[in-house]
């Protein structure tokens, strides 16, 4: 049963042309994630973690294999359909918050809803609920340049959840934060993933956040290897 997993990858291969050589980044990679599960992916830089996340998030197309989001194979979708998948089924948290600079915090959340044509009073209230959860309700009218790094990242977390996506993808969400703040941010993501029963993949360097995750994978030779809990 494919559709029991919100996200599943089947035999995915991704190659890059590097001069006259071809570098294989992902090789015959298969992967499933369940709702309510939070997975961490670690590994040295250049090992293909971000490539994996980009393919899982419909930002890149694999050279071979299938990417199935909520039971739908998205490999052969056109750009516009992929944009819809990103808009409605996936919530991203990037290294930097990537908030829209000319919109204030709540407008950044509203903007996603408006693009998805889900703008309503109820959804507006949900935005405020999310902002309350990330502790930014009193900053709702502030612009990104008025916020600290941690606040921006929390706003980005709220934005990732605003469209009720099944999948949350985070690419080094704590890279631009100091260690005490990064733990707080990770706890926040973890709590929200559990509360809303999402499937979350976190790519990270940050060892201290690993105890918060259900499963931990290492990227090795183009494939994901699950780490035993005891090793941590």
């Amino acid at each position: 049963m494919q559709s029991q997993y919100p996200l599943s990858l089947k035999s995915v291969t991704k190659m890059y042309e590097d001069g006259d050589k071809t570098a294989i980044i992902l090789k015959d990679l298969s992967f499933n994630i369940k709702n309510g599960e939070m997975i961490a992916i670690i590994g040295p830089s250049g090992s293909g973690k971000s490539t994996f996340l980009s393919i899982a998030g419909a930002l890149l197309t694999p050279d071979d294999g299938e990417v199935i989001v909520n039971g739908v194979t998205i490999n052969n979708c056109n750009e516009s359909d992929k944009a819809n998948v990103r808009l409605n089924q996936i919530g991203y948290i990037f290294q930097t918050s990537n908030l829209v600079p000319y919109l204030n915090v709540e407008e950044n959340l509203f903007f996603v809803l408006k693009m998805a044509k889900q703008w309503s009073v109820a959804s507006k209230e949900f935005c405020h609920l999310l902002l309350e959860k990330v502790g930014l309700l009193n900053r709702a009218k502030h612009y990104p340049y008025q916020l600290s790094g941690g606040e921006k990242q929390r706003a980005a977390i709220a934005r990732a959840f605003v469209n009720h996506p099944e999948i949350i993808l985070a690419d080094e969400p704590t890279a631009s934060l100091d260690s005490s703040r990064s733990l707080a941010v990770m706890e926040l993501i973890s709590n929200m993933v559990k509360q809303y029963n999402k499937a979350a993949i976190i790519v990270t360097h940050d060892e201290q956040i690993l105890p918060l995750c259900d499963r931990i994978f290492t990227m090795k030779d183009g494939n994901l290897v699950e780490k035993e809990r005891e090793f941590i």
Binding site: S80, A83, Y92, F94, N98, V100, P101, V112
Partner: peptide
């Protein structure tokens, strides 16, 4: 870069 980010969070090129 801004356009790239907007596309990543689901904005279409036409939009």
């Amino acid at each position: 870069n801004q356009f790239g980010i907007l596309k990543a969070i689901g904005a279409k090129t036409a939009y």
